[in-house]
Design a protein around this nucleic acid. Structure first.
Length: 611
DNA sequence: GGATGATGTCATCAG
DNA sequence: TTCTGATGACATCAT
């Protein structure tokens, strides 16, 4: 309701009426500024300015959409947009499209296939001026109109590669572009990026208002929440690692949302809030570029960080780890320690430590002095250690190991979740991370032994051990020592190899021990059965013997009586058995002995006991 | 949710 | 002294 301010006849009655109406408007929510003509005029100018900016953005969006879709190839089977390989850069021989889509590594060293970053680069090349311009616009409009943003207002998709915040201005997004971004959002790498961004945001706790509703909004992390100082400070410790993690392409889960389903459920929101600025904030923040200029070759000049990015070689789609011994070792040996500095610096190589956590430093140069048992211990640590470990070995795996990589790379989000639910820390990471709804769920019920073996293999891969685990475990001592002497392994690699061999040997020993124990148990059971049978047999024999003995005694008694009855004295009278007894001497002679001598005779010769 | 078996790992001891 | 196998104890996971 707008009140007419110009009152031609301002009588007392009219003035009272005006006051009444004014108060009514104020009660209905209208502010005093509503009645201020200058204010309205100013607002009108602002609105017009926004419209102009919006038109400019839409134009930019269309151009970028064309450029983006030109670099993406729609996979008819999966429906995903797969980065097209540059015509002048042939794909690596063993990289299949699936690998490209699911294992894209953002190492950006030997880039062949197009990755999301390449698309961003291409955009940066295509629209360098608009980006800069848009950056300023974003910064300006953010301050002006951030409070006016409404949920139903779609947000402009990524158009700039600057670290500027996403403009909360009312934006219109073309359906095609939105679809394209939805496809991009479905890429695991991008999901990782999102989670990394969110995780880093959560971990670094740089929320301006941590308890504010915005800070608790999952989408909130996509907005730049730090001032420049914070961001710079953060970049020293966290952003480079995030940057590196992003390029490592480890597969995380959504930190706040825990799983992919939730993430996908929020996909529209994410899509709506995922702007180019947020991506640029993740990928090419000025601070990051400045801090990492020497290490990554991504030099940002501050004003236009992306201006130099086209000079950067195309991204490597996947730093596929090859287990071929010499190959891997040669490539990994030199840079193992060189490219894995203390993660506090936030820089690491393909092992992708995350510097957002102070504990990551253990995986720096010194981290590789950790034995594998330490790593294993960390693996069992639900809190930071597991994520450390997983981040350490997050990717660089072959597609076959992707599932394992997922399970190993317990994402930071999972870690955070586990910190909240420590009792669930040992659940299958693949279940916890956002990919449990992916086809990888098929392999969820891998045999434990396979998982264990794979873990050692993954560790060997992560440290680029130039031997297979089987070799490490099964080689004879001499051969093993010879093999170790042939290769110059650093301390961490030696420790890992020793651990793997020890564990492998001990595992076999334990299996043998258990086998023997079972065999012993079976043997003892067999012995027990035979002894029981023997006992039964002996008891039966004893019973038979007792029976026989009784029978013999009866026969002997009968014989005795028969012989005694046949005896006669000189008068022809029979002897009384109560007065006499028959006794046999040692020479076989039989005597008739009176009973009086019974005791003596019995003690002397026990042959003729009385019946 | 507890019981149980399988398995891996570690610590320790003995050869 | 070191290495290696054996084994008890414990933890974890699957059923």
């Amino acid at each position: 309701m707008i009140l007419e301010m110009e009152v031609p006849h301002s009588g007392q009655q009219d003035m009272e009426l005006i006051d009444i109406l004014w108060n009514q408007d104020i009660d209905l929510g209208a502010r005093r500024e509503v009645f201020d003509y200058n204010h309205r005029q100013k607002e009108h100018e602002l609105r017009r300015q926004r419209e102009l900016e919006e038109e400019k953005r839409q134009h930019l969006v269309r151009e970028q959409e064309k450029a983006l879709l030109a670099q993406l190839q729609l996979d008819e089977e999966t429906g995903e947009y797969i980065p097209c390989p540059p015509p002048n850069a042939p794909l690596q021989s063993d990289v299949t499209p699936l690998e490209v889509t699911q294992n894209v590594s953002f190492t950006g060293e030997n880039g062949d296939a197009m990755s999301f970053d390449e698309c961003l680069q291409l955009l940066a090349e295509t629209f360098p001026v608009e980006e800069t311009e848009n950056t300023s616009v974003c910064l300006d409009t953010t301050a002006v109109s951030a409070p006016t943003m409404s949920p139903e207002q779609p947000v402009l998709p990524p158009v700039t590669l600057s670290p500027a915040p996403p403009p909360p201005l009312p934006q219109r997004i073309s359906p095609d572009l939105e679809q394209a971004w939805m496809e991009l959002l479905s890429l695991p790498e991008l999901q990782q990026c999102l989670s990394m961004q969110m995780e880093d945001t959560l971990e670094t706790t740089v929320y301006p208002l941590p308890n504010s509703p915005e800070a608790q909004n999952p989408n909130y992390s996509f907005y730049p929440m730090t001032n420049l100082t914070d961001q710079k400070t953060n970049s020293l410790n966290a952003c480079p690692a995030e940057f590196m993690n992003t390029f490592d392409g480890s597969v995380p889960s959504m930190a706040p949302t825990d799983n992919l389903s939730q993430m996908k459920a929020k996909a529209p929101q994410l899509n709506a809030n995922l702007t180019a600025e947020s991506f640029c904030d993740m990928y090419y923040p000025d601070a990051i570029l400045e801090e990492n200029s020497g290490q990554r070759g991504l030099e940002g000049n501050g004003s236009n960080a992306m201006s130099d990015i086209p000079n950067k070689p195309p991204f490597t789609p996947v730093d596929l780890y090859s287990l071929s011994p010499g190959d891997v070792f040669d490539s990994g040996k030199q840079n193992l320690t060189v490219e894995l500095p203390d993660s506090d610096s936030g820089i690491s190589s393909n092992t992708s430590p995350n510097a957002s956590s102070p504990g990551k430093s253990m995986y720096g140069n010194e981290s590789f002095c950790y034995s594998d048992s330490d790593i294993e211990e960390m693996d069992h640590n639900p809190g930071s250690a597991e994520s450390d470990y997983s981040e350490m070995f997050s990717l660089n795996f072959q597609p076959d190991d992707h599932q394992m990589a997922i399970s190993l790379s317990a994402p930071i989000g999972q870690t955070q979740q586990q910190e909240k639910n420590p009792k669930h820390h040992k659940t299958d990471p693949a279940e916890d991370n956002g990919h449990n709804s992916t086809p990888f769920t098929k392999d969820k019920h891998k045999k434990r032994s396979e998982v264990r073996l794979s873990r050692d293999e993954q560790r060997a891969k992560a440290l680029k051990i130039p031997f297979t685990v089987d070799m490490i475990i099964n080689l004879p001592v001499d051969d093993f020592n010879e093999l170790m002497s042939k290769h110059e392994l650093n301390e961490a690699q030696l420790a890992l190899v020793r651990d793997i061999r020890r564990r492998g040997k001990n595992k076999v020993a334990a299996q043998n021990c258990r086998k023997r124990k079972m065999e012993n148990i079976v043997g003892l059971e067999s012995n027990l059965d035979s002894l029981k049978e023997e006992k039964e047999r002996l008891l039966s024999e004893k019973s038979q013997n007792i029976t026989d003995l009784k029978e013999m005694k009866q026969q002997l008694n009968s014989l005795y009586l028969e012989v005694f009855s046949m005896l006669r004295d000189e008068k022809g009278n029979s002897y009384s058995p109560s007065d006499y007894s028959l006794q046999q001497s040692t020479d076989g002679s039989v005597f008739l002995v009176p009973r009086i001598k019974k005791t003596f005779i019995k003690s002397e010769d026990n042959l003729f006991s009385p019946l």
